[in-house]
């Protein structure tokens, strides 16, 4: 079985994995990182979104072996010294979650969105979150939360989470 090394929320793990093991199952079943749930089997719902080497990815559509050598940040790795990430705060403040099942993925996708567009319009937030489905909120409060977090983060930049390095730039060949 392939042996992989992967950093998750700042902790390095060495694991032997079946090639077919999905990253999300590595997180949940092997590493106990159950904060990242699974909502579908086609990559549509986005509940399992994490950041992989700094950019959002659906961990149900990535093999654990593909993450070998990578840094993964999940919703569990966002808080700093017990202080929530501004996006977590904003979701709470704007009542942007109800059952909360989509929330980990939604928060990770929203943080990724702000990396590209630190002050997104309502339209930009809606388009940017098109890969994350929520069945409870109707999204109105999610949009408000993302824009609230954007305002807060432009005021006080949140300490960068581990693994949230700049995305790999395309090298010209």
């Amino acid at each position: 079985m392939p042996r992989i090394t992967v950093s998750v929320d700042g902790v390095t793990y060495e694991e032997e994995v079946e090639p077919r093991l999905l990253l999300v199952h590595l997180l949940r079943d092997r590493l106990g990182k159950t904060g990242t749930p699974v909502g579908c089997d086609t990559g549509n719902c986005g509940a399992c979104t994490v950041t992989l080497d700094g950019r959002s990815a659906k961990s149900c559509s990535v093999l654990a072996v593909q993450a070998d050598g990578s840094e993964v940040v999940t919703v569990e790795g966002l808080a700093r010294d017990g202080r929530w990430h501004p996006m977590q705060e904003a979701f709470h403040a704007e009542h942007a979650l109800q059952c909360g099942y989509c929330t980990p993925g939604m928060i990770m996708a929203a943080i990724d969105l702000l990396r590209d567009d630190p002050d997104p319009s309502e339209e930009a937030v809606r388009r940017g979150l098109e890969g994350n489905l929520c069945r409870c909120t109707g999204y109105t409060n999610i949009v408000r939360a993302v824009r609230r977090a954007a305002a807060e983060m432009s005021r006080v930049p949140h300490e960068r989470a581990p693994g949230a390095a700049e995305g790999r730039e395309a090298a010209a060949s």
């Binding site: 990559g43 986005g46 979104t49 992989l52 950019r55 959002s56 990815a57 659906k58 559509s61 990535v62 996708a109 990724d112 969105l113 940017g128 098109e130 890969g131 994350n132 995305g167």
Partner: peptide, 9 residues
């Protein structure tokens, strides 16, 4: 194409 997370991979 798809959505941002899918476009990253």
């Amino acid at each position: 194409v798809a959505d941002p997370a899918v476009r990253h991979r």
